[in-house]
Each structure stands twice: as C-alpha cells, then as structure tokens.
Amino acid sequence: MVLEMIFAKYNYIIYITLMTIGFYGMIGKRNLIKKLIGMSIFQYSIFLFYVSAADVSGGTAPILLKEPAVYVNPLPHVLILTAIVVAVSTLAVGLSLVIRIYREYGTLDEDKILELSK
C-alpha cells in the first residue's frame, strides 16, 4: 500500500528529496560555493515538480500533429523556462559575489569570513 503510493507519486518523492538536499546545502554547508550548489539543487527540484506535474500519461510533446493526440500540458514547461532563466541569473550573481568575497577575504569559509569581517 505504502509502496504503491511511493511508486505512484515517485515524482513527489524525488522532488522533495532533492529539495531537502538543496536546503541542507544552503543552510548547513559553510562553504559558499557549496551553498550555491545547494541553492541550485533546491531551485531545480521545484522545476522538476512543475514539469512532472504537467505530464499526462501517454501524452506527447505539444507540437501540432495532423491527427488528434493527447498532449502534455505545455504551460508549466514554458513557465519553468522562465524560472530557469531566473535561476541561472541568480547563480551568476551568486558566483560573481563569491568571487568578490574570495578576493576580499581570501577564503570561502563562512565562519572565517564572519571572523574576518568583525
């Protein structure tokens, strides 16, 4: 029963697992780059959720065909495209911040940075 549910909703399980990993990376890791990696995992887990939610079983890519067919919902994909762009930009900003921080303090360890900035 439980197993069945896990298999039926495996996409949720995956995205939540990824989300937790990402969240841990953002909060738990002290290295700024690892934080950024965590951030990306966190964001992409949500994108996975969107995309998997759009799936229609047996559906095909939403390209107009001659004969009628079942399409998956294209809207979430479009939305996530935008979200990916946002995520990439965030990552870019994050990375350039990390570079600046590294040049300022010579380290990427958060604790050390906090100590140095006192």
Binding site: V85, V88, S89, A92, L95, S96, I99, R100, R103
Partner: peptide
C-alpha cells in the same frame, strides 16, 4: 539579448577570476 547577457556574465566571471 539572452546570448549577449549570458556571454557578458561569462566574461565578467572570467575577468574577475583573473583579477
């Protein structure tokens, strides 16, 4: 626009790394 921005981000990061 996307191409230009992506590329300039890349340039920026490369430049920063080179100091």
């Amino acid at each position: 626009t996307v191409m230009a921005i992506m590329l300039s981000i890349f340039y920026d990061i490369v430049l920063k790394e080179k100091g």
